[in-house]
Nucleic acid binder design. Sequence first.
DNA 1: CTTTTAACACCTAGGTGTAAAATT
DNA 2: AATTTTACACCTAGGTGTTAAAAG
Lengths: 214, 214
Amino acid sequence: ARRRMFPSVRVKVKGLEPLQQYYIAIDVVPVDSKRYRYVYHSSQWMVAGNTDHSCITPRLYIHPDSPCSGETWMRQIISFDRVKLTNNEMDDKGHIILQSMHKYKPRVHVIAQDSRFDLAQIQSLPAEGVQTFSFQETEFTTVTAYQNQQITKLKIDRNPFAKGFRDPGRNRGVLDGLLDSYPWRPPLALDFKAFGADSQGGSSSSSPVASSGG
Amino acid sequence: ARRRMFPSVRVKVKGLEPLQQYYIAIDVVPVDSKRYRYVYHSSQWMVAGNTDHSCITPRLYIHPDSPCSGETWMRQIISFDRVKLTNNEMDDKGHIILQSMHKYKPRVHVIAQDSRFDLAQIQSLPAEGVQTFSFQETEFTTVTAYQNQQITKLKIDRNPFAKGFRDPGRNRGVLDGLLDSYPWRPPLALDFKAFGADSQGGSSSSSPVASSGG
DNA sequence: CTTTTAACACCTAGGTGTAAAATT
DNA sequence: AATTTTACACCTAGGTGTTAAAAG
């Protein structure tokens, strides 16, 4: 079981050295060590147990345009729409491994290319020359089956591959407007297959090098 | 106009250092400075003019598995089935640029990763640490429309994307057997779209590091 | 009972040779 | 007349939510 992340993480980056080469990568880290279950009648996620994430090193997905000059990175919206998530802990395809029914948050890493290290095939983050950004509003809960019908509706309306399930006469989902507002994304609805949306929109730092949305 | 190369170049490699990292790349170089035309009644290509290739540096297609350890490269057949050819000299997608109605030969380069150079985005070959191999039997003539019906038949029978044109009752093409014989490939039938097959099968050196076929 | 898996119809995305049209 | 371009039907390859079955 492996699915793309949708909606995908998209960022803009500022303040890079135009001629310096950078790798840009994404990983996904646990928000806490809790397991969750969705309570339908109250439409929210409740703590349902504990998990130990401490011995797991998250996998890194390197943006396929890497390496690339700062100038080029800053000129475009950087989209991670090919990232794949899996719940298979034995995965050998390099996909990002997550546990279902847990909360996660994506992180974006800007890595200056440094001739001292071989960054051609990064498996783990270098000790220096890395700037990491994450955004509260991209937090999400993983599931293998949708718990929240609004999320299902958003996916069907927004994901081109789900076009076959669209109802032409239906109104847009209640969360759809959030996808249009700049710069904030909706509470991200991601997972192997889909997932709940219990997170709250957050605020960014005053002058980040990376900003979400676009 | 851009098409994949078909049949694709496939090689096996021996004699690498198991733990050393290598890039493997392909490019396509002119066989001569002649322009050709196909004479139908004699079923062969004839010289039809001259061309100056001397100021053109061929583009390099880096195998998507690069960089990779010698051990891993030697364990698999290395296939360049995603290489794309174009006749558009203004191409900005990095595809290999060729002129129609000319003879070409693919070259395979094995490039040892060297921390002294930044090989992460190779645009041209390094001065040292490169071994280059080419095979007489992979020579081909570029066209924009098929000149030889046997080539058309081979493509339809062998290329999965041309399945819609297959005639289930028809015998296999006369060139098909060559695709099955090891280690030699048929006179390669490539081009933007397809092309003639006037080349002769050749012999390999006694103990090459790379061998064609598979 | 909750959660996961697998087969499925329905899509997007893109690689074929064909044949007619356009170009040279 | 020779060569190239374009629109096309037909295919491969793979990303959707759905649903029923399986697993826990």
